[in-house]
Design a protein around this nucleic acid. Structure first.
Lengths: 136, 136
DNA sequence: ATCTTCTTTAGAATAATTATAAACAACGAA
DNA sequence: TTCGTTGTTTATAATTATTCTAAAGAAGAT
């Protein structure tokens, strides 16, 4: 459980002004035990449900992108009509249940080390992510 | 180099009628030495360039989806504004150069075995794909 | 040839995302 | 506290990839 005050500091430290909307978004995103996968639309609805205060969709987009840029959110590479984000920004991988369109975390220790024996001159590796698609 | 006749047979074998448009799309997609990564829009433009005949965008969508369903194309899981496909349908992985928005194959033998030590009851693994993002 | 079925097509519809520009809120300095 | 600056929110419009629709056309079987 993180207090509102801590979110305010977190925002300030990232040179993001702690507005009511951003704090609400923080509460919904980061006051959780378990990692959270969501689309912008999921989040938009949750904010209204959970905080009772209205936010504009544009603000949700702005804020999610700002948080992503600051490294507080991770974008999950799956092809879907919507973009998925993850509050777990540590290195880890995903199952994607194709039928139910549901994402499931795979802890990093549940995946053996991934060795990439090839490199591209002038480029360095930013991330290595595994997507395991599931079927019935 | 695959002949037009072979494409016609391939289409027939898949219960897809060998239309002029589909054959043209086959020529552009499959008459290549190297694997080919593309978006629908790339392909649309290439067809017009290479064959000189016009196709409607809707047909390109239809055909790519039909080919995907038949297993002649593979969808590449990256978040981009457009969906990427790959003519290499064998198991393999990708680099994605984030800056240049370019995909590069990683041969399967260039990636060590990937061990997934977790399973989801009632589900089986359909595919395991690694995406390595590159930065400068 | 003819009939049926599949395909193509232009254009409309949909849906996610981004851009715009005006109202508003946070901040720092006086 | 007040004021000016700058960053933020918002409604709405614009954009863009993709899907849908329904009519015209082409392929296949009889």
């Amino acid at each position: 459980m993180t207090s509102k005050q801590e979110f305010i500091e977190k925002l300030r430290n990232s040179s993001l002004r702690p507005t009511k909307q951003r704090i609400n978004i923080c509460e919904v995103l980061f006051n959780r035990d378990k990692t959270f996968h969501f689309t912008i639309n999921d989040l938009f609805n949750l904010i209204i449900d959970k905080t009772g205060e209205k936010v504009s969709l544009a603000t949700v987009y702005n804020t999610v992108h700002a948080f992503h840029k600051k490294g507080y959110l991770k974008e999950i590479p799956i092809n879907s009509n919507q973009t998925y984000f993850d509050t777990n920004v540590t290195d880890h991988h995903h199952f994607f249940d194709v039928k139910e369109e549901k994402l499931i975390d795979i802890k990093n220790e549940d995946v053996g080390p991934i060795e990439i024996q090839k490199s591209i001159p002038g480029k360095k590796i930013k991330s290595v992510e595994v997507l395991v698609k599931l079927e019935d």
